[in-house]
C-alpha cells in the first residue's frame, strides 16, 4: 500500500472541505479522484503532501508518517499542482534545472533527467523559450515536466488537463500512462469523467468533501442501475422490427417514434449486434445509430441527483 488515508478531516473555518475520507492506493495503480468543483480534491492532495495540516485522521505514504519522515517522503513525491507553478522569467530549461536541483539532482544526471523530461513532454524544441510565451497547453506540459525529473514513486496530478486543446490533452494522458508503465503510482484528479474512465485503474468519486463511491470504472458503473439505450434512425418504418427486437435477450422495451427506433435493454446485455441484425433482416436501411452505455456521469447523477458539470 503506497498511500493509506484514514478518516481524514480538513476544515476551513466553517467549510468542511474534507469530511472523513478514507483512501487506500496500491502501488502501480492510476488512481482517479473524480469530483465536481469544490468537492475537496485539491484539499485532500494538499493534506496528503504536507502542504496543509489535517484537522484529523491519519496519513501514511509508503508505510511512513509524513510528520516523522518528511524528507524521505518528499523525495519520493512528484506533484503537478492544479495552478501552473513555473517561473515566467526563466526559460523552460532553467525552470527544470532549478526544480531538479531541489531534489538533489546534479551533474550529468541532472542534465540527463532534464533532457528526458523535455523529451517526455514534447518540449525539447522549446527549451530555451520563456514560459510567458508558451501556449496554455505547453505551460501545462512544462508544469508536469517539473515534477517528474527525480523519478518519483508517487506522482500526483491535480487537474493537469484543465483548459487545454484536445491535442495537448491526449499527449498528457498518454504521458501519464507511460509514467505508470515506467513504475510510478499515479493519483489523478479531474472533473472530466471521460479522462478518468480512460486512464484510471481505480476511481474514487468525491462530493462535498466525502468519498461517495470507490472502485474500478466497471464496478462503479455496475453499481448504478442504469439501462442501456440504443436509438436508431431508420429510412422506413416497419413494425415487424419491434416484435423481432422484443424477442432479443435483455431487451426491456422497444418503440418506434416517427422514424426513430428506441430500444432499452438491461445493463451489460451485449445485444447491440443482435439488434442490428434484427433491423437488417427486414431490409430496412439504418441512417444513424447511437448506443448509450452507462457512464461515470450517470453514476454521479444516480448518486447525487446532480450532474458532474453544471
Amino acid at each position: 500500500m503506497i498511500v493509506e488515508v484514514k478518516n481524514l478531516v480538513k476544515r476551513y473555518k466553517d467549510v468542511l472541505a474534507v469530511d472523513n475520507v478514507n483512501l487506500n492506493i496500491q502501488e502501480g495503480e492510476i488512481f482517479g479522484l473524480l469530483g465536481p468543483n469544490g468537492a475537496g480534491k485539491t484539499t485532500t492532495i494538499n493534506v496528503l503532501t504536507g502542504l496543509s495540516k489535517a484537522d484529523g485522521g491519519e496519513i501514511k505514504i509508503s508505510g511512513r508518517n509524513l510528520n516523522t519522515h518528511e524528507m524521505e517522503i518528499k523525495q519520493d513525491l512528484g506533484i503537478v499542482p492544479q495552478d501552473i507553478a513555473v517561473f515566467e522569467d526563466l526559460t523552460a530549461y532553467e525552470n527544470l534545472c532549478y526544480f531538479a536541483r531541489l531534489y538533489r539532482l546534479k551533474g550529468p544526471l541532472l542534465k540527463e533527467r532534464v533532457e528526458e523530461a523535455l523529451e517526455f513532454t514534447g518540449l525539447t524544441e522549446k527549451k530555451d523559450i520563456y514560459p510567458k510565451k508558451f501556449s496554455g497547453g505547453m505551460k501545462r506540459r512544462l508544469n508536469i515536466a517539473c515534477a517528474i525529473m527525480h523519478h518519483p514513486k508517487l506522482i500526483i496530478l491535480d487537474e493537469p488537463t484543465v483548459g487545454i486543446d484536445p491535442q495537448s490533452r491526449n499527449h498528457i494522458l498518454e504521458s501519464i500512462k507511460k509514467l505508470n508503465q515506467l513504475g510510478s503510482t499515479v493519483i489523478y484528479t479531474s472533473h472530466y469523467m471521460e479522462e478518468v474512465d480512460e486512464i484510471c485503474t481505480k476511481i474514487a468519486i468525491m462530493d462535498h468533501g466525502r468519498v461517495i463511491a470507490k472502485g474500478t470504472g466497471d464496478e462503479l458503473k455496475a453499481f448504478v442501475a442504469v439501462d442501456e439505450k440504443v436509438t436508431a434512425e431508420l429510412a422506413s418504418v416497419n413494425y415487424t422490427i419491434v416484435d423481432n427486437i422484443k424477442k432479443i435477450r435483455g431487451v426491456k422495451d422497444c418503440s418506434i417514434n416517427g422514424k426513430q427506433l428506441v430500444v432499452v435493454s438491461e445493463k451489460h446485455s451485449k445485444n447491440l449486434g443482435s439488434i442490428i441484425n434484427a433491423i437488417s433482416d427486414t431490409d430496412t436501411e439504418i441512417l444513424s445509430l447511437n448506443a448509450e452505455k452507462p457512464t461515470l456521469e450517470g453514476v454521479f447523477l444516480t448518486l447525487t441527483g446532480r450532474k458532474l458539470r453544471d
Binding site: V86, L102, Y103
Partner: peptide, 13 residues
C-alpha cells in the same frame, strides 16, 4: 501569486 512557493514547500529542502 504565481504558485512557485508551492514547489519549494513540497520539495525535500
Amino acid at each position: 501569486r504565481k504558485n512557485t512557493l508551492l514547489r519549494f514547500n513540497i520539495a525535500p529542502i
